[in-house]
């Protein structure tokens, strides 16, 4: 008798905790789905990066010797030194193992570990495109919200036209115009690099100097990309405009700007979260063209130099880095949606 009643008691005790478990396993399943998706993408990137650059770049020894007369022994020695004489599957295994342990191999061009090259140049890129991206998103969203809210107004028409002209301008051309006006004619800002050699080494002088060098590249970068965020936010607001909940908010006696900021903007921001995270992911690959125009010592310039050399191991490593940062950023966006959009938790 007692034995029979026990399982029943146990079941009734378990009921509430099972309810709680279901909620967390909902998030667990959601997380697992997206993390495993991201892992598959990362593996594909890892594989394709190894083969793509072997297929398109040709024999690295030919490119390194640049058609100079080289004896067969010398070529064999170079091959051995670069590890190219070993079977492909072994090279592949070394590459996978190396990438996973952060040992990215050595650059043909600089004869230095690629990991060090990237670590050296990453801060410059993060500074330039990070600043530019934050400014572009803030500016684009701020203008886009007001543009969409007053669709067809002079503010809207003017900003959409300006934004689209800048968006369609080639970056290198806009960069040159900016250099011409602000550096050449007005002489306000330096054109080249990230710091001047003559600056005293103390922290504040260095910071001011870098900030001074940063203005023109950031200006160019922001001017080119902000219109994308403007248009997305504008259309997102336009989608909300006729909504009934905005009529409710107006009927409650809220001011027009309160209706916009408290009700329309939070709803309109939801679909833009993925976009913002995509932007954050692309902060790492930054703006290759802007860095080149302003000789900014970042990953973009490294990438361009490596294409010209061609420096296959560096290209390979940068390809993996750029792709994985985007994949991880999108993964973060998916996870964030769970918390900010209450409707996702239900489906």
């Amino acid at each position: 008798m007692t034995e029979r009643s026990l399982p029943a008691d146990g079941a009734s005790l378990e009921a509430p905790s099972a309810g709680r478990g279901r909620v967390s396993s909902g998030f667990g399943r959601y997380l697992f789905k997206h993390v495993s998706g991201a892992a598959v993408s990362l593996l594909l990137v890892l594989f394709s990066s190894f083969f793509i650059f072997r297929l398109i770049a040709g024999d690295p020894i030919d490119q390194l010797t640049k058609e100079r007369p080289v004896s067969a022994e010398q070529r064999a020695a170079m091959r051995a030194e670069l590890g190219l004489d070993r079977p492909l599957w072994q090279q592949f295994w070394d590459y996978i193992a190396g990438t996973l342990t952060m040992d990215l191999g050595e650059s043909f061009q600089y004869r230095r570990p690629i990991f060090d090259l990237i670590v050296e140049r990453l801060p410059a890129t993060l500074l330039l495109s990070g600043t530019g991206m934050v400014l572009a998103v803030l500016l684009g969203f701020w203008i886009g919200t007001r543009s969409g809210w007053k669709q067809g107004s002079r503010f809207d028409k003017g900003h959409v036209a300006t934004g689209l002209v800048l968006y369609s301008a080639p970056t290198f051309w806009l960069g040159m115009i900016v250099i011409l006006i602000f550096a050449r004619y007005l002489g306000l800002f330096p054109v080249n690099g990230m710091r001047s050699p003559s600056t005293p080494p103390d922290f504040w002088s260095q910071a001011v100097d870098i900030g001074h060098h940063l203005v023109l590249p950031v200006l160019t970068y922001t001017a080119v990309v902000y219109a994308g965020y403007l248009m997305i936010m504008r259309s997102s607001i336009l989608d909300e405009l006729g909504s009934d909940y905005l009529t409710t908010a107006r009927a409650k006696g809220l001011r027009d700007d309160e209706v916009r900021q408290r009700h329309a903007v939070p709803n309109a921001l939801l679909p833009t979260v993925t976009l913002v995270f995509l932007a954050l992911g692309s902060v790492v690959n930054g703006s290759i063209v802007t860095e080149t125009v302003f000789s900014w010592p970042g990953l973009g310039t490294l990438f361009v130099n490596s294409i010209f050399y061609p420096d296959r191991p560096v290209l390979q490593a940068l390809f993996v880095l750029f792709s994985s940062s985007t994949i991880l950023a999108v993964l973060c966006a998916e996870i964030l949606y769970w918390f900010i959009d209450p409707r996702i938790r239900r489906s």
Binding site: S243, D244, Y245, T247, T248, A249, R250, A251, K252, G253, L254, R255, H263, P266, N267, L270, I340, D341, P342, R343
Partner: peptide, 23 residues
């Protein structure tokens, strides 16, 4: 604005869309 909701208020049709989904 002062009269809205204090003088007269409305129960809208289709309450799903008349409420803000993220609040």
């Amino acid at each position: 604005r002062a009269v809205r909701w204090t003088g007269a208020s409305i129960v809208f049709q289709g309450a799903m869309h008349s409420l803000n989904a993220v609040q």
